[in-house]
Design a binder for these strands. Structure first.
Lengths: 134, 134
DNA sequence: AATAATGCAACTGAGTTTGTTACGAATAGC
DNA sequence: GCTATTCGTAACAAACTCAGTTGCATTATT
């Protein structure tokens, strides 16, 4: 895998789950489908669980399941859950001292935040139901 | 610096240039403002030059300048010039063999491409003139 | 008790990216 | 022509990121 593999893994898995919402899947099963490792799956799906998109059960017959109907989970939910912040600006310890620089910096940051907001709104228009498979 | 520093560096520099479009700036000067290294600046701005957004002149009194009026350079131009592909899908050597998987894979890929297209369109609505400083 | 699953920490290896040095090529001014 | 200045590029080091892996504790079912 390469870049954005977390987002990709999340979307593929949710796409599967949207097809059979009631089926409980183990991380091993999901990892097999995705061609990766169960621990990696648990790491990514753990984020989605924290965000309330999935539930997981330990022990025998445990595994992962959607926490809501597929139509009520949007790509924005997934994006925010993964906390990727693709349009991230530089860190706060990087703010320039010069006032002209500072003004420009704030403007650039503001524009980037606007763009990210637009992206999130756009993502909110698509539910995982719209890419379900099987 | 951290993540997306290339995009950030490009936007900050273009923001400056949009404020004084005729002024020629050296990579050393730009690097000083950005708190980085001239070679790093040349690397990033080189991409923008390849895309036709900037011009550079060697030798005495050489340096960098906008190739077009600030209003005619959009954030989409910058994004595409840097070739970042934030919403990139996984590489082609990763396509699954199972037909069900394959169908889902194509759908997920399609959705991600749509999203990236939306992002680019949104970026095209803002020109670097709108974040000019000084 | 045995089995099967998640949760989590720690480590490794590959890959990416920034920073740096060095040097060649081109240009302007003297 | 000579010199100073600047870009262009290659090569390398250091830091960081990330997927993958192992190991083990915890929890739940049988």
């Amino acid at each position: 895998m390469k870049r954005n593999s977390r987002l990709s893994l999340a979307l593929h898995t949710l796409g599967h789950m949207a097809g059979e919402p009631d089926r409980v899947r183990t991380s091993a099963e999901i990892a097999e489908h995705a061609g990766t490792n169960p621990v990696v799956v648990r790491r990514v799906l753990g984020k989605l669980r924290e965000a309330g998109l999935l539930t997981s059960e330990k022990g025998h017959a445990g595994g992962w399941k959607l926490a809501r109907p597929p139509r009520q989970i949007t790509l924005a939910d997934v994006y925010l859950a993964l906390d990727e912040s693709l349009i991230a600006t530089d860190s706060d310890d990087q703010v320039p001292s010069c006032s002209v620089e500072h003004a420009l910096h704030r403007r650039v940051t503001g524009v980037m935040k606007d763009i990210e907001q637009s992206l999130i709104e756009r993502l909110g228009e698509t539910s995982i139901d719209e890419m379900r498979g099987a």
